[in-house]
Amino acid sequence: MNRLPSLFISHGSPMTALQPGQVGPRLAELAAGLQRPRAIVMASAHWLGRAPLVSAAPQPETIHDFGGFPEPLYQLQYPAPGAPALAQEVAQRLADAGLQPGIDPRRGLDHGAWVPLRYLYPQADIPVLQVSIQPMLGPQHQFALGRALAPLREQGVLLIGSGSITHNLHDWHSYSEAKEAPYVRPFIGWVEQKLEADDLPALFDYRRQAPFAAQAHPTDEHLLPLYFAMGAAGGDQLGAQRIDAGIDQGFLAMDIYRFDGADAAA
């Protein structure tokens, strides 16, 4: 079995589930080019905590963790099975890395997980579990989470971070498809440049070094899954490849990244 890449996905607003835009076809194309995983581990911007938790529900519910959207959105389900045995292995790997995880036997799939998974694997027949992220511990901690789980890529497990390359909800009605926020393209260009250069110190220090960092991310949680995916590349050579999926509503950059690590140079 070939080693799977790790992925970062910008999941956009919950409405992406009904309005796929560019990201839906891009995710379908991406999945079509990958070997079928035996399981999926996702770190979503919508499960936060003080310590890492691993979901172990045998049949995770579809969580509609949002309000004020059209009723059809709340009817959508993603009935993928869970992976309790894999959850125990994930927790053990995190413990071995000194990350002090816990197990949550009831946690379902939040929209940061099930919205993109509807386009990656619409049959919902691949077991899925989630790992929480810890915003107060910063990018290097999320990188360590991914690094601890990187060996699972050799066992047919797809490791995914789900967040957003830009995420400033204060701008929800300020921009549009015809009027982009001025900070978006400089920020995504900087991220792409640093990822292609494997410049981990700069990426860890994005708040100080990236252009318009405070505008692109007033809070960290939607960028932190990127670091999980970077860590899951398995080394300091990321093998990053950007997949452009457009800019939703003029302020949500929908970039997708795949990280092949050292395999990218092979």
Rank of each mutant, 00 (worst) to 15 (best):
R38N: 09
G12W: 13
A232V: 07
E89S: 14
D65R: 03
L18Q: 13
Y121T: 06
G246E: 06
E89Q: 15
L129Q: 07
S6I: 05
R3K: 15
L226K: 12
I63R: 05
Q88S: 07
P127S: 06
P58W: 10
F212S: 11
G24V: 08
G250I: 06
E61Y: 12
S132D: 04
P139R: 02
F187N: 02
Q19N: 14
A144M: 01
P182D: 13
A148H: 02
G12T: 09
Q209F: 01
Q35Y: 02
L137E: 06
P182M: 03
D104L: 09
L4T: 06
N2R: 12
S55H: 01
D220Y: 04
F69W: 13
M136V: 13
L120Q: 09
A264T: 11
W190T: 06
I103D: 01
L203K: 07
A213E: 02
G250T: 04
I133M: 13
F228H: 00
D220I: 03
S132G: 06
L195A: 08
A178T: 15
R242Y: 14
A202D: 13
P218K: 11
R118Q: 12
F143Q: 11
L94D: 05
S44A: 12
M15H: 00
L149S: 12
L152D: 05
P101D: 12
E196L: 15
D248G: 04
L223E: 00
T219L: 11
Y119T: 07
T62G: 06
H111G: 10
N2Y: 09
S174A: 15
Q142L: 14
L169G: 08
G33M: 06
I243T: 11
L18I: 11
I160E: 05
R208A: 13
P58Y: 05
G49N: 03
I63S: 06
L76T: 11
Y119H: 14
A28R: 14
A124T: 13
E154Y: 02
Y121H: 15
I63G: 00
T166K: 03
L48M: 10
I9A: 00
P127D: 09
Q88W: 07
A57D: 10
G98H: 08
E71P: 13
A266G: 15
A56T: 07
G21T: 08
A28D: 05
D199Q: 01
K179P: 05
A245P: 07
E196H: 14
G98S: 01
P122S: 02
D125S: 07
I103V: 08
Q88V: 15
I243F: 13
V41Q: 09
P72S: 05
F66I: 01
H111M: 02
L169A: 06
H167D: 00
D199H: 11
R38G: 12
Y74H: 09
L223N: 10
L238R: 05
H64E: 12
P101S: 01
L76W: 04
P79E: 10
G250E: 13
L158W: 04
E71R: 14
